[in-house]
């Protein structure tokens, strides 16, 4: 399943001086997975496309990534 963000838990040593950042995340936008874009994909209406920065829902990647219902960052 496609997820626009991946997270991991960096090692935190017992003598590290600062409070730990327990989870680190990085973006994995949809262009990493699409390959050569297939023909006739769904499009946004023009006004919306101009606002979003792309004509294609499959390539739209809002940032900061919206938190899914009931999920946590």
């Amino acid at each position: 399943m496609y997820t626009p963000v991946k997270c991991y838990h960096p090692y935190y040593g017992p003598y590290d001086p600062c409070p730990p950042c327990k989870t680190k995340c990085y973006q994995t936008p949809p262009n990493l997975y699409l390959g050569f874009q297939p023909m006739n994909l769904q499009q946004y209406p023009l006004q919306e496309a101009l606002y979003k920065g792309t004509l294609w829902p499959c390539l739209y990647d809002p940032y900061p990534t919206p938190v899914p219902e009931g999920g946590k960052r």
């Binding site: 936008p29 262009n31 699409l34 874009q37 979003k52 920065g53 792309t54 390539l59």
Partner: peptide, 17 residues
């Protein structure tokens, strides 16, 4: 800035193609 960021995503896609 979010618009500009999205354009980077699209440009990357086109270069990959």
């Amino acid at each position: 800035l979010k618009f500009l960021r999205e354009r980077e995503v699209i440009h990357s896609q086109r270069f990959r193609e």
